[in-house]
């Protein structure tokens, strides 16, 4: 898999803060995304999923580890080539309002990537921006001359997507693109992203804290907890038989619209420990209902328990 992977992340580490108050947001995360696939990245707030996404799209430099895009480690490129190369990695952000410059017209925001790279005259820029607005389901004649403050969150998010696609990226990192939207609008944006993925042959890293959202978009899912991966597998396997107790709790927490369905075990209690002072051994043990002595001593490695399904747990569901 790693050979044709468009994106491969190896042992990614990100530290925040100065020497004495150091916090490790991401501690040794590895995964790969093959071309034209979507990897969902889930976890609760503070689990390091956004930081991972920012490193992948080179908005932020990791402290350690490598991010390979189409086989090359972009951090080794000279500044000029990096600037050109990173256009192939675009991002869609969580906050639809903050994602767009409030002072600029929608059409100019969408045309900006072309303006940065030049080579096309203004008329052509406007035409391509208008086409892209149409592709994301907006009417350029109506919205083109508006400013972001006049639009709804869903509309703003469509514009963010349009802007991200202008440079014909190969990889789109979506950092919780629908978390700030109404549920009805969420579905529209998810459908839009799925359609565009097909149309433009995109590879996606889809970050979310809502498993249902990830299920709708992803081929594979990675579950993060406190800066580490606990489980990585095809989306059906993860939903039907989650192996890590944390994934299992997340899957159980997805509401099912069936009143006769039995309640699946007690929900997790407690909060995530501070990443400044992570627990020894397995990071999930403080909240794990199955934790044993060994969990405090030895950190479980991420191991393949079925083809393409990796778990970091001493007592995965199938072995209990």
């Amino acid at each position: 898999m790693s050979e044709q992977a468009l994106l491969s992340v190896e042992n990614l580490v990100v530290d925040y803060g100065r020497r004495h108050r150091r916090v490790q947001a991401v501690s040794g995360v590895s995964f790969a995304v093959p071309e034209r696939q979507t990897l969902g990245l889930v976890g609760e707030s503070g689990s390091g999923k956004s930081t991972t996404g920012r490193c992948v799209s080179f908005v932020q430099r990791p402290t350690g580890g490598t991010v390979r895009f189409a086989g090359t480690d972009l951090s080794t490129l000279p500044a000029r080539e990096l600037r050109r190369a990173r256009t192939k990695l675009q991002m869609v952000f969580q906050d639809p309002i903050s994602s767009l410059n409030p002072r600029r017209k929608v059409i100019d925001i969408v045309a900006e990537p072309l303006a940065i790279w030049g080579g096309v005259n203004r008329k052509e820029m406007m035409r391509r921006a208008a086409d892209m607005l149409e592709a994301v389901g907006m009417d350029p004649a109506v919205t083109g001359n508006r400013r972001p403050g006049e639009l709804s969150g869903g509309q703003c998010q469509r514009i963010s997507v349009a802007r991200a696609l202008m440079l014909e990226p190969a990889l789109l990192v979506c950092d919780e693109p629908v978390s700030a939207l109404d549920v009805s609008v969420q579905a529209q944006i998810l459908n839009l992203l799925t359609d565009l993925k097909e149309r433009y042959g995109l590879t996606m890293l889809f970050i979310a804290h809502d498993l249902a959202v990830v299920k709708a978009t992803s081929d594979r899912v990675a579950v993060m907890y406190l800066g580490k991966l606990c489980e990585l597998g095809p989306v059906e396997d993860l939903y039907l038989s989650p192996q890590h107790p944390y994934s299992a709790a997340l899957v159980d927490a997805v509401p099912v619209p069936d009143p006769r369905r039995p309640v699946a075990g007690p929900p997790l209690s407690g909060d995530m420990p501070s990443p400044a002072d992570p627990p020894s051994g397995c990071r999930f043990r403080t909240r794990c209902p199955f934790a044993q002595d060994i969990c405090a001593i030895e950190e479980p490695p991420l191991e393949e328990i079925a083809p393409g399904h990796l778990v970091a747990c001493h007592f995965p569901t199938s072995s209990r």
């Binding site: 908005v59 050109r84 767009l100 940065i116 991200a164």
Partner: peptide, 9 residues
């Protein structure tokens, strides 16, 4: 939007 501009190069 500033981060996005950086990502666009």
């Amino acid at each position: 939007f500033v981060v996005a501009a950086r990502a666009m190069g």
